[in-house]
Amino acid sequence: MDRERLMKMAGAVRTGGKGSMRRKKKAIHRATTTDDKRLQSTLKRIGVNTIPAIEEVNIFKDDAVIQFLNPKVQASIAANTWVVSGSPQTKKLQDILPGIINQLGPDNLDNLRKLAEQFQKQQPPAGAQATQEEDDDEVPELVAGETFETAAEDGHTHTS
């Protein structure tokens, strides 16, 4: 490289030289742990209590379920605040449905019936699938005077 070009590049980077002012404030790089500490102090101020021995938390959305296995659950009933922390997994309702039926109360069973009706409407009837599968399994009728060997030799196929 050319020395003049190097000097131009170095001059553009230089922020100060001999006798220039020092920085007034040092840039502070915060770690992510400070956010967690601030959150915990805010939760203490609200007055949340840890709820022990919860094995599973399911949060139901329109088309999916957010599932936490062995989460840390904190609650403040007076502030109407629930905190669930842990590693979440997003799953479809059909995947976890058999296992959560015993966890649902009487109010939720009505909602479950409505969901089941919606799923039945989305899926085509079983009879339509069976007839389509039967059509695929049928062997086509033979055309008189043609065999597979002659069709392969001629390079064409005959469809009826």
Rank of each mutant, 00 (worst) to 15 (best):
G105D: 10
G11T: 07
R3V: 09
E117A: 00
K25D: 10
P71A: 02
F119Y: 10
P88H: 07
P52I: 03
Q122H: 02
I66N: 00
A151S: 13
W82V: 04
V143H: 01
D63M: 03
I51S: 02
G17H: 02
T90M: 15
Q120N: 07
K44H: 06
A12M: 14
N108I: 08
T15L: 12
N102H: 13
A78I: 09
T15V: 14
N70F: 11
L104P: 10
R30T: 15
L6G: 07
S87I: 03
A10P: 10
V13E: 15
Q74R: 04
E138L: 04
K8A: 04
S76R: 00
S20Y: 11
K91W: 02
A151I: 00
E149G: 06
I77K: 10
Q129D: 07
L115M: 05
M1D: 07
L93K: 02
I101S: 12
A12R: 15
H156E: 10
Q89A: 03
V13M: 13
L43S: 04
T90D: 11
N111H: 05
N111K: 06
I54M: 13
D63V: 00
V139F: 13
P71E: 07
I101M: 12
R38P: 08
E56F: 10
I28N: 12
A116H: 05
F119P: 01
V48Y: 00
K18R: 02
T90G: 06
D62G: 00
E141L: 04
N49G: 10
N108Q: 15
V57M: 07
P98M: 03
P106L: 00
T157D: 07
F60I: 05
L93R: 09
G16D: 02
K24R: 09
L69Y: 12
Q123V: 03
D154M: 09
A31R: 05
D62Q: 08
P52S: 05
G155Q: 12
Q74A: 04
Q67N: 13
V57Q: 08
S160R: 03
T159D: 06
L69E: 15
K44F: 00
E141G: 01
T147E: 10
D135T: 10
E149L: 09
K26L: 07
N80C: 02
N102R: 13
P88D: 03
Q94K: 12
V73C: 01
T159V: 03
E149K: 11
R30E: 13
L115Y: 02
G86H: 05
K18G: 13
L142K: 03
